[in-house]
Design a protein around this nucleic acid. Structure first.
Lengths: 124, 124
DNA sequence: CGGGATCCATTTGGATACTG
DNA sequence: CAGTATCCAAATGGATCCCG
């Protein structure tokens, strides 16, 4: 059976739509962190040590902007900010789970080691 | 139940791993195109009119490099090149399907219309 | 603590022209 | 047809300093 070729129009392509909202490569892992519960800004920098504070801040704003996460400020001293998944963010968990499952399998699969073949297919 | 915090180490984080292999926002939709069968280079530019030939070429090479797609050259005239999913590419279909399903739901859901609240984007 | 503002190097990506 | 090569503008991302 043939799937509709709605990716003809990026505005109407659900895959492109999701990819756009999931955005950069960091957003899935940020959502992944939040699947365990609320996370503070500083905690992210510990959980994902390879992301800079600037990029983290940008990605968090983007996710909040798209309605996937909720930012809650506690006016204490020192100030505390907690991020959590919104209902919409919760709804995207199956996507993150699918990514997690595939990634786990791929990292364990020895076949992945033969991933870099000689791309010499032509005789040129 | 607490999930292991393996995202402490990006090398061992399956979500980050998948995000890295899925790469740019174009790769999921490229794989999506291939779920219907083989696709030629020029066909991609029709299916995804908003991607440039240069970027398309780069993404295809990246996907082939990661072993998700297979590039087959038919020495005819005019030359013909067909891309298809490898077994590894086939194995990632559930991820694409999850993205597709969520994206379809999100595009239909009126709640998505209230996605852009107060927050002003000052940067660009 | 949780950022924002700024500076700057690197990367990305579009446009165009060219090739086998 | 299926790309590659080149140029160049724009976006990205790290480092650093500052602030409430």
């Amino acid at each position: 059976m043939k799937r509709p070729r709605i990716y003809n129009n990026p505005e109407n392509c659900p895959v492109l739509h999701t990819a756009h909202i999931l955005g950069s490569k960091w957003n899935p892992v940020i959502l992944y962190c939040l699947m365990n519960g609320n996370v503070r800004f500083g905690k992210f920098t510990v959980l994902i040590p390879t992301i800079s504070r600037k990029v983290l801040s940008e990605q968090l704003k983007e996710l909040e902007h798209h309605g996937l996460i909720i930012r809650k400020v506690y006016r204490e001293k020192p100030p505390r900010v907690e991020y959590s998944l919104s209902p919409k963010g919760l709804s995207i968990i199956p996507v993150i789970d699918a990514m997690c499952a595939w990634g786990r399998g791929d990292m364990e699969n020895p076949a992945s080691l033969s991933v870099y073949p000689k791309q010499e297919i032509s005789d040129h």
